[in-house]
Design a protein around this nucleic acid. Structure first.
Lengths: 204, 204
DNA sequence: TTGACTTTTGTCAGTTAGTGACATTATAAT
DNA sequence: ATTATAATGTCACTAACTGACAAAAGTCAA
């Protein structure tokens, strides 16, 4: 683990055979899992079934995903993390108001959802049927809440009342969730951004 | 199962030895579980440990609780169900506005929480540390959401836009959740009702 | 109280998710 | 080629559940 950073990343080139195979396998596992979930149902699909489909051992599955749920919830978590990164990188030169920064972040997140419409649609349909997935889906959405508060607190133009800020963030994420669920309930056909914008406007 | 209703409930008397023992055992299991969770931690406590403490077989534990999490989450679910019942029984003679009915229901729920402060405090402290419990806790809070919408729709003075109504309910439950967590973070010392009232006022 | 009936319980066997340890194999670097 | 490193498979294990069935306890009528 000496200076791989130097020898590999300096050229911004290929991410090494090993890395490529890892990505490929990760995607293969995910695809196989989603396919099986859709065919037989989530609970009727054992880790072993997924492993066999990709010709790996069950042990290896768990080296790529910490749990069965995470195959479905990883992207949701990733989108929320991307939202945090977006907020962190928001140019605050014009000293945005906390609410405005939050709104723009949620719209950014909604846009990411829309870009991966297909994947999220399937994931959502499973989450609706399986309580444990639904539960962890909510957790994935809301675990970022305090991080949002911290970021807004440190980057807002003026200090916020922590309690009020928390309420602001929670209700706005609730608006995102509602927009998301309504959009997905409609098969992802409608315009998620428009839906969310409307909800955000109602909150003001 | 013929006419037990007649012979037992007509006198509103003792709920039969069998029923009493069941309640007793259920409470004993719950108490033993909570004690062990506090002593050793949730994940370090196996079902078998709980079963041994109450001198039952592990199989019997699962006849009383469908899962380990449910020992912790049952009361939360019960409180939300009680809220639904309260809303269902709300006298609508004066044709309440949907928001007002919802507010009063959430205050009722908050009151129930406050009445069981001790129990919820412990449960919350565990939920904070264990993701699976936290996830199911959120699920328990939010699974009642659509039921709230349905009830409000059918009982409100005038028909609601379903989408707006959903947003209303989601944000208000979010306010309940925030108030709850802030109250519990403060050790349950503060006034939950006041906190919630404040949050509800902000939402208007 | 006896005796039939119902509910609850324990036992047993099994499935599945998830984890640690270690030997084996594949990739990387020299 | 050779050595170091990282990924994989195998094995053994824990722990949460579940179905089936027999044993025990509670119920009720005669």
């Amino acid at each position: 683990m000496s200076d791989t950073a130097l020898s590999e990343q300096s050229q911004a080139a290929q991410p090494s055979l090993r890395e490529r195979k890892k990505r490929l396998l990760q995607e293969a596992i995910e695809q196989a899992a989603l396919t099986l979930f859709r065919q037989r149902g989530y609970e009727q699909t054992a880790i072993q079934d997924i492993a066999e489909a990709v010709m790996i051992s069950p042990r290896t599955f768990f080296r790529y995903f910490p749990s069965k749920e995470e195959v479905l919830l990883g992207p949701t978590r990733a989108v929320m993390q991307a939202g945090l990164a977006y907020l962190r990188a928001l140019p605050l030169t014009q000293a945005k108001e906390a609410r405005a920064a939050l709104q723009s972040t949620l719209l950014y997140i909604a846009d990411l959802y829309q870009q991966q419409r297909r994947g999220f649609l399937l994931r959502y349909q499973i989450a609706r049927q399986v309580p444990s997935v639904a539960a962890f889906y909510l957790y994935a959405l809301l675990e970022a809440e305090t991080a949002f508060c911290d970021l807004l607190q440190e980057r807002a133009d003026e200090p916020q009342n922590p309690s009020q800020l928390r309420l602001l963030v929670a209700t706005h994420i609730a608006a995102l969730r509602v927009a998301l669920e309504q959009w997905l309930d409609g098969g992802g056909q409608g315009d998620l951004l428009a839906l969310l914008k409307n909800h955000l406007k109602v909150l003001e």
